[in-house]
Simulated assay, not measured.
Amino acid sequence: MTDTDTAEPVRPETIKAVPVRHPGRWVSGAIVLVLAAMLIHMLFTNPNLDWSTFAKFFTEKQILKGLVATLELTVIAMAIGIIGGVALALMRLSANPLLSSAAWLYIWFFRGTPVLVQLIFWFNIKALFGDISLGIPFGPTFITWDVNSLVTTFIAAILGLGLNEAAYMSEIVRAGIMSVDEGQTEASQALGMRRLKIMRRIVLPQAMRVIIPPTGNETISMLKTTSLASTVAFTELLKAGEDIFNANYKTIPLLIVVSVWYIIVTSVLSIGQYYMERRFGRGSSRALPPTPLQRLRRNLTTFHVRPQVPERGAS
């Protein structure tokens, strides 16, 4: 036996891992910090912001009344949009060519014209129809209503926003329905279930995983789109702010008041969307989306954590 056979194996030297430098991150971080410092300095030193006026009118009765009107308009318009969107989506997927074509024409028209134009149209509907009558077609009329008494500014805003939203929601619902495997419908039909029951009990609950996220975005967008109702003389949040700064000429502070209220309501809706996605995402193969608190806790606990590189030769 030689000395080479009896010698102990030599362990390789431990590799000293040197972290990769990221100078670009430090530069971009420094730029962001400088811009943030400039923004904070401007917020506290610019006299034109007039924070005293902001504090005075933030909870003004007129502003809160406009906020309530905005919320009412958002809820009703989205309800019309969701119900109409489901109906239009089912019509688009129908085997009846008349229903499918009618739904396609509706979607084509309302998505092809600006929502502001539709709002103004409904506000001036009397110029088109005059009065609305109830009677026998092409025959005598029994009852006549004045259009202006029926289509008020609130109704015009609801019709303009709700009917427009139905066109967009129909495509969202249709995409959700088409994402469900056709085998689900075929198996349900083999069990003797009717088409409407299959859609209500089998297809739509599974399609909600696809429908909920864009519907949440549409709701947030609808909240901000309600500001267009001010063009038809409906007093919502923005119109309430405009009425005040047209009287006291404090334009910037009142616009900040309106913007902060929009941000608050949007944040609440975003949190609700998170929990809706988690609820309808249960049972899927994907991990549930984190809640806002979980996301914040994860960011705080992993901000300074650096991945460990294992050393070569370590047992």
Rank of each mutant, 00 (worst) to 15 (best):
T4C: 00
D5R: 09
D5P: 02
T6V: 13
E8V: 08
E13S: 14
T14K: 15
A17K: 13
P19H: 00
V27M: 06
V27Y: 04
A30C: 02
L33G: 12
V34G: 08
M42T: 14
N46M: 04
N48M: 07
D50R: 04
A55H: 12
E60W: 11
A69D: 04
V75P: 07
M78I: 03
G81W: 08
G85H: 14
A87M: 12
L93T: 02
A95E: 14
L99K: 01
S101R: 09
L105H: 02
I107K: 12
I107G: 07
T113W: 10
V117H: 00
Q118F: 04
F129D: 00
S133R: 14
F142T: 13
V147P: 02
T152Y: 03
L161F: 03
Y168M: 02
V173L: 06
E182Q: 12
G183Q: 03
T185G: 05
T185S: 12
T185H: 11
L191W: 11
L191M: 13
G192F: 09
R195C: 03
K197A: 15
K197S: 15
I198P: 11
I198G: 09
M199L: 14
R200E: 07
V210N: 13
P213C: 01
I220Q: 03
S227A: 07
A229C: 12
A229G: 04
S230C: 04
K239F: 09
G241A: 09
G241F: 01
D243S: 05
D243N: 13
I244P: 06
I244R: 07
I244E: 10
I244Q: 01
F245T: 05
A247H: 15
Y249W: 05
T251H: 03
L255R: 04
L255V: 12
L255N: 15
L255S: 06
W261E: 09
L269I: 11
I271N: 14
M276A: 15
M276Q: 07
R279F: 13
P292K: 03
Q294V: 11
L296F: 12
L296S: 05
V305Y: 10
Q308S: 01
P310C: 10
R312L: 15
A314T: 08
A314S: 13
A314Y: 08
